[in-house]
């Protein structure tokens, strides 16, 4: 599963770390002072490392709960994100993480207790409802068997009912959700691209069919689910492909119990895009013409496909269920 486990001195004696080291005793365990010694070094190659990533167990300091970027999520109060993990076990070619980090190793911040106390502080400081996104710098559910993220954080949000937790994922690892009573303030938001795009760009990701099945199971168990159609990557059959995807999904998902659906185009900061072009000079997606606006790279949408796609989606869902991810 990992090529090695690096352990920050600071967390050596942490119970969560001891448990993981015992569980993965056959993998080399390597001590380090700070995770940056391994993760942030110059001269690494993300693409090569992705073939045999290591796990780094570390402690996160400072602001652990941050305001989410403008337009990241749905309306409903102040929104924040927190990242207990950096990097993802999947290998989606379009992912901005490839351009954001120098290393493909997974960093798991094990000081969940500190995250909890900052989340609690933030909830208490909010006047009204607040939203907390997990899965911005990783896929929270995909690593669940190792991270036990849900085991820890669902009880936190079960106490704070004015706060909403969105777990953004492409994973089918939902046992930890199905084993417990659904939380009305927790949303499992599944990301999708069209079938063609998924086959082409989403490596190691569960199939669309399996993801839909899992959403169905979650809905049947009483969990709120949401749909995130992003990133939209233009191709000649875009509308037709998404029409097919929407049909497949909405044939199985109960729309009345759908929290929300969103569409977001392919986008990332210019510096990340530049890094990814160097990493994948042979990749068609990064050879395409781009436009840069306010430091953000997007692909050129010559036919206003995004608007047309929204119109198709709105045939299936209510307008109040939809938002466009900026």
């Amino acid at each position: 599963m990992f090529s090695a486990i690096y352990i920050e001195d600071e967390v050596r004696e942490h119970d969560r770390v001891k448990e993981l080291l015992e569980r993965f005793s056959s993998i080399p365990h390597i001590d380090c002072q700070r995770y940056g010694e391994v993760f942030n070094r110059k001269g690494q190659n993300f693409r090569i490392q992705k073939k045999s990533p290591a796990l780094i167990l570390a402690k996160k300091y400072g602001n652990l709960v941050l305001p989410s970027p403008d337009g990241y999520g749905f309306d409903g109060g102040k929104s924040y994100y927190f990242s207990h993990m950096l990097n993802c076990i999947y290998d989606c070619r379009y992912c901005f993480l490839q351009g954001m980090y120098r290393s493909a190793n997974y960093v798991l911040f094990v000081n969940y207790e500190d995250f909890e106390s900052q989340i609690t502080e933030s909830i208490k400081a909010s006047d009204g409802p607040s939203i907390y996104y997990s899965g911005y710098d990783c896929d929270s559910l995909a690593f669940e068997p190792v991270s036990k993220f849900c085991d820890y954080f669902l009880p936190v949000f079960s106490i704070h009912t004015s706060a909403v937790l969105e777990i953004r994922t492409k994973s089918t690892q939902v046992r930890s959700l199905l084993d417990v009573k659904p939380l009305p303030n927790c949303i499992v938001a599944m990301s999708f691209t069209s079938d063609g795009a998924s086959l082409r760009y989403e490596h190691k990701v569960p199939t669309i069919r399996k993801r839909i099945e899992v959403l169905q199971k979650l809905q049947q168990a009483g969990w709120l689910v949401a749909l995130r159609f992003e990133p939209i990557i233009w191709d000649s059959n875009l509308l037709e492909n998404y029409h097919k995807l929407f049909t497949e999904i909405f044939h199985r998902i109960d729309i009345d119990f759908l929290h929300s659906a969103s569409i977001g185009e392919f986008r990332m900061p210019t510096s990340f895009h530049k890094n990814i072009v160097k990493l994948y000079p042979d990749e068609e997606l990064f050879a395409r013409e781009i436009q840069i606006d306010n430091g953000l790279v997007t692909l050129i949408d010559k036919e206003d496909s995004l608007r047309q796609l929204e119109q198709i989606l709105l045939r299936y869902i209510k307008p109040e269920q939809y938002y466009r991810c900026a």
Binding site: S3, A4, P28, I30, C32, V38, I48, Q49, K51
Partner: peptide
């Protein structure tokens, strides 16, 4: 080598664990 410690300078380096 999982890490290389230069005793004189205290500098520590971590070769990537790509070989099995």
């Amino acid at each position: 080598a999982s890490k290389i410690i230069h005793r004189n300078s205290g500098d520590t380096q971590f070769p990537a664990p790509v070989l099995t």
